[in-house]
């Protein structure tokens, strides 16, 4: 039942829709509802960071990280590489979920292994970009564009680390109890979360490697 339809119910009439309500079971399980709200919340965090970022791009001291030949992300090969890895991690998680549904334990274990490996690789890749930036003299406090780059990637990375911790806990439970059902339920959640983080990353990637002209256009469109 739609939320707003539900609000029209006249509850003092005792013969109201509750009979239907008994039958109205959906596929949602509580963890999924909670995850949806959590993703909404994290989405808002990134949204607000983005808004402040776009506002900040219009101040004269802002120097974009891409757009001119000498700027570090004009050639963003390494970021493309990291993106590919994160994509593969999501794919690995996806196939792990499929394998769990099909009750194929070997594939599940392999899938989990690759998910961990690729996710860690992504984090390492992000770290190495930090190092690279640092070695070029792009420190976190030398320009707001740099500050935002470090901030965004750090917050994104921390969310991935959080996801990994949950996945580790699930894997541990699975290995000690061997219940595939429980794991496959959990994998559905992880899959959603990883996909969400992938989308966020693609968005951040596009945002952070734009040129100052792009920012200006966006800012005008948003009415800053």
């Amino acid at each position: 039942m739609n939320f707003f339809t539900a609000l029209k119910e006249k509850p003092w009439q005792t013969n109201s829709h509750y009979q239907q309500e008994f039958a109205d079971k959906t596929e949602l399980f509580p963890q999924k509802t909670a995850l949806r709200f959590f993703i909404g919340m994290v989405g808002i965090i990134f949204f607000l960071f983005t808004i402040t970022f776009l506002g900040r791009t219009q101040y004269p001291d802002f120097q974009a990280l891409a757009g001119e030949p000498w700027l570090p992300f004009t050639n963003s090969f390494q970021l493309w590489f990291n993106t590919g890895i994160l994509l593969l991690a999501s794919a690995a998680l996806f196939s792990t979920g499929k394998a769990a549904e099909a009750q194929r334990i070997n594939l599940v274990i392999a899938g989990l292994f690759f998910t961990f490996l690729l996710s860690f690789l992504f984090l390492l890749g992000q770290l190495s970009v930090w190092k690279h930036l640092n070695s070029l003299g792009y420190f976190i406090n030398s320009n707001p564009a740099n500050s935002y780059y470090y901030l965004f990637t750090c917050v994104h990375g921390l969310h991935l680390v959080g996801g990994l911790l949950v996945l580790i806990k699930m894997t541990y439970k699975f290995l000690s109890k061997g219940s595939l059902d429980l794991l496959s339920k959990g994998l559905i959640l992880c899959k959603t979360y990883w996909n969400f983080l992938l989308i966020v990353w693609l968005f951040l990637f596009a945002l952070l490697t734009s040129s100052s002209e792009t920012y200006q256009t966006i800012a005008i469109l948003c009415g800053f």
């Binding site: 939320f3 539900a6 609000l7 119910e9 006249k10 509850p11 109201s16 829709h17 509750y18 309500e21 008994f22 949602l28 399980f29 509580p30 509802t33 909670a34 709200f37 959590f38």
Partner: peptide, 21 residues
């Protein structure tokens, strides 16, 4: 806490407890 409250309200209501009840 908040994820708990929201999820509980949405998913753990007793039989017959519609939102408007």
């Amino acid at each position: 806490g908040g994820l708990n409250y929201v999820t509980t309200v949405l998913q753990a209501r007793a039989k017959g407890m519609t939102l408007m009840r």
